[in-house]
């Protein structure tokens, strides 16, 4: 059974430091905020799942760094942002595996959807100093795919409602998220 944490930022800039010593899931929801997240995986055989979901209106930077300080540690980062206006949103994402940390899994998936013509950047970095590591990263910046909209529309769903469905699916990207803990964020999605 994993420890589950909910973090909600609303128009703030904060620093978070986590020393992880047990299996942990962190759901981090952000409304127009920037934050620096530093995570140390300090015990062998533990996993971290980090879901960052961001609705952005101004210029903001989200930075997250995961240090695999022990062997056989596992991190999965899912960073999703929606850049609503013509502004700048940046994700700086770093996974670091030390020389003595063997058999680690270090993955990251980063996506930003631009609703308008904002400028978005993703810097996905993997600093791996061990030969026995399973690691991957991905980054996507763009609009929702036309083919997705066409498919949904072809079943009678108007374009505006298609976007609502896609935004919900993109920003609440785990079945285990409890809606009553993120009410403000759910309401914010409706405003996009």
């Amino acid at each position: 059974m994993s420890k589950i944490l909910y973090v909600i930022d609303n128009n703030t800039k904060k620093d978070y430091n986590y020393k992880i010593e047990e299996d942990t899931i962190i759901y981090h929801f952000s409304i127009n905020s920037g934050s620096n997240v530093l995570i140390d995986l300090d015990k062998e055989d533990i996993s971290l799942y980090y879901y960052y979901n961001d609705i952005n209106y101004d210029d903001n930077i989200f930075t997250i760094k995961v240090n695999h300080n022990k062997s056989n540690t596992h991190s999965e980062l899912f960073n999703h942002g929606v850049n609503v206006k013509d502004n700048e949103l940046s994700f700086k994402v770093e996974g670091s595996v030390l020389k003595n940390s063997a058999k680690c899994i270090c993955n990251q998936d980063n996506q930003i959807i631009n609703i308008s013509d904002g400028k978005s950047t993703i810097c996905p970095n993997l600093l791996i100093d061990n030969y026995d590591v399973d690691s991957s990263h991905s980054a996507y910046i763009g609009k929702f795919k036309d083919e997705d909209i066409f498919y949904l529309e072809s079943r009678g769903i108007p374009e505006k409602v298609c976007y609502k469905l896609l935004l919900n699916g993109f920003l609440i990207n785990s079945d285990s998220i409890e809606y009553d803990k993120i009410k403000d964020f759910v309401l914010e999605i409706e405003k996009i």
Binding site: V161, L165, N168, G169
Partner: peptide
């Protein structure tokens, strides 16, 4: 469709319930 689209994050039930409501 010949090759139905995959849409991550939108569940089948949510999608179909919305579609039935609209149609």
């Amino acid at each position: 469709m010949q090759d139905p689209t995959v849409i991550e994050g939108v569940s089948n039930s949510e999608f179909l319930r919305t579609a039935i409501g609209e149609v």
